[in-house]
């Protein structure tokens, strides 16, 4: 069971949250969309990092304040290393 610190409500039980999968996948801009190949679309839509290690991912406090936020979580230990707001770039964890 994960204990997730919602940036707005504080630490709450995992089942108050819903998982938003990999973070920082930017939707192609309208301009890019004009010239994108099928392979580039497939890459955006389907291909995932799925790392064994630190994963940058989105969660939403769906049974709470309903706000989205980013989480850096280790996929082997399940340790939540950092919670940071949407729109912020992935933290460089080596500096930590």
């Amino acid at each position: 069971m994960l204990l997730i610190s919602c940036p707005y409500c504080g630490p709450r039980d995992e089942h108050e949250f819903s998982y938003g999968h990999e973070a920082h996948i930017a939707r192609p801009t309208l301009e890019q969309q004009q010239t994108m190949s099928d392979a580039e679309w497939a890459d955006y839509l389907f291909m995932r990092k799925n790392p064994k290690g630190v994963h940058f991912e989105r969660w939403v406090h769906s049974r709470g304040c309903r706000q989205w936020f980013n989480v850096a979580r280790h996929t082997v230990t399940h340790e939540i290393i950092k919670v940071y707001p949407m729109g912020e770039p992935a933290p460089n964890l080596e500096q930590k």
Binding site: L2, H15, S18, Y19, H21, N50, K52, H55, T75, H78
Partner: peptide, 10 residues
């Protein structure tokens, strides 16, 4: 729901 390699779940 979450991705994991830990062979345990919640």
């Amino acid at each position: 729901a979450y991705t994991s390699y830990a062979q345990v779940g919640s």
